[in-house]
């Protein structure tokens, strides 16, 4: 079995994996990172979205062997020193989640969206999240949350420079 090295939320793991093992199953079943859920078989729902080397991917559509040597960030690694990321805060503030099953993927996709476009308008947010399905919220509050987080994050950047 291939041996791979992956860093997940700052911790480096060396694991032997079957070639067919999906990255999301590596995370959930082998590494105990159950914060990233699975919602579909076809990469449509986006619930399993994580960042791989800084870019969003659907971890159900990546083989663990393809993630060899990569750096994975999941929802569980987003807070630093117990402080929520602005997106986590904004999703909470704007009531952008109900059952919360899509939330990890939605937040990670939003993180990627804001990396690409730090000040998106509503259309850009909606387009940027087209690969993440939510069945509870109707998306209105998710759009608001991303807008709020964008403002906070850009404010922080401005004050830092």
């Amino acid at each position: 079995m291939p041996q791979i090295t992956v860093t997940v939320d700052g911790i480096t793991h060396e694991v032997e994996v079957e070639p067919r093992l999906l990255l999301v199953h590596l995370l959930r079943d082998r590494l105990g990172k159950t914060g990233t859920p699975i919602g579909c078989d076809t990469s449509n729902c986006g619930a399993c979205t994580v960042l791989m080397d800084g870019k969003s991917v659907k971890s159900c559509s990546v083989l663990a062997v393809q993630a060899d040597q990569s750096d994975i960030l999941t929802i569980e690694g987003l807070s630093t020193d117990g402080t929520w990321h602005p997106l986590q805060k904004a999703f909470h503030e704007e009531h952008a989640l109900q059952c919360g099953y899509c939330t990890p993927g939605m937040i990670m996709a939003s993180l990627d969206l804001l990396r690409e476009n730090p000040a998106p308008d509503d259309d850009a947010i909606r387009k940027g999240l087209e690969g993440n399905l939510c069945r509870c919220t109707g998306y209105c509050n998710i759009v608001r949350a991303v807008r709020r987080a964008a403002a906070e994050m850009s404010g922080r950047e401005v004050s830092a420079t």
């Binding site: 990469s43 969003s56 659907k58 996709a109 690409e116 940027g128 690969g131």
Partner: peptide, 9 residues
Amino acid sequence: VADPAVRHR
């Protein structure tokens, strides 16, 4: 094509 996450891979 597809969505941003799919376009990354």
